[in-house]
Design a protein around this nucleic acid. Sequence first.
DNA 1: TTATTTTTGTATCGCTCGGTATGCAATCAC
DNA 2: GTGATTGCATACCGAGCGATACAAAAATAA
Lengths: 196, 196
Amino acid sequence: MKTRGRPRAFDPDEALDRAIEVFWEHGYEGASLADLTTAMGINRPSMYAAYGNKEELFRRAVTRYAEHDMAYAREALAEPTAYRVIESFLRANADALTRTDRPAGCLSIQGGLAGGSDNGEVAQFLATSRLGGERALAERLARAVEEGDLPAGTDAAALARYVMTVSEGNAVHAAAGVDRASLHATVDFALRAVPS
Amino acid sequence: MKTRGRPRAFDPDEALDRAIEVFWEHGYEGASLADLTTAMGINRPSMYAAYGNKEELFRRAVTRYAEHDMAYAREALAEPTAYRVIESFLRANADALTRTDRPAGCLSIQGGLAGGSDNGEVAQFLATSRLGGERALAERLARAVEEGDLPAGTDAAALARYVMTVSEGNAVHAAAGVDRASLHATVDFALRAVPS
DNA sequence: TTATTTTTGTATCGCTCGGTATGCAATCAC
DNA sequence: GTGATTGCATACCGAGCGATACAAAAATAA
């Protein structure tokens, strides 16, 4: 019942990867359907049939981006100490922001900070997505406080927010063309603030 | 020769302030001429006569924003020590990002990070504008190194970039609705990294 | 084969966008 | 007053937007 009809001539995940890059470079509003479908190598009706509409395509793109392009964030949480969690995250982040085979910066920030023509729904979706990462980091750091890995009384949520702030600031810099070494120099400073 | 003809019925600077808020909230692309002229209280032809076109209006808005809404940045540079320069800047920045009488966040970031339909000219203009602030701070910090106020060998440019990174990250958080106290908590952490 | 189902390509929809042409209103020079 | 000059208001332009209608194409089911 699923194999009937003309078979799809493209790989939805691969097409999604192309869409990710377009959204990444131009933002949600700046990415037109013409840009998107051209990059994806499909026609408009195929896109609508496969993903629904532009906003849904974007949400799927962001989801896939979070799972694949930001896998380093989840991996960093597995580091044994709070300091190494933070360092691993910020280093991998600085590298990811300056990959030569991908647009500079971070989709979840470049996608759209301000509420565009819609009532900020896209921006809010992205903000919620980012906040999810921050909460995960906060939980990991709270565990570190419990374990005595971080000084007692350390505000894990605030420290997590600080780390994410540095990461987002680096994303802004990367989008502006700042190079990898400079981002790592920023990380060098940022790490000095981590309690030991 | 200037007082001939029908007098202008609006104050260009005040109208510009209204335009600033629209760009601030919706970004360059998300702000339509209908939004802008409505907020400015003028008709389309009046806008074109007074400012040229949408992009020119935006550039003037950003310029005025930098001069007025970010005056605290220049004032911070006048503080006597490097640490107080940085603290003053980050504190005032956190307050400015969460003013209740203005949109949350920072125009020069919300205006547009990604290159939209144009070839990223607006994003580049904003990036250059931000970089100007970073350079001014770097020069102030370099002076502090010379004066022995910062440890010899301190990389003033890197420290300035770090401070701006925190400020930009806070702007991203503020745009997402994070409150003032949380931004200051981030500043608390950030200041620990400043060499003394 | 024939009927059914799904995708594809083309051509187009209604709408909103940034930008303007045109005529009227308001002021100054004389 | 009268004419020149400038800003204001309406109505409109071509272009590009996101989204679709429609029919040909390609597969399975019978």
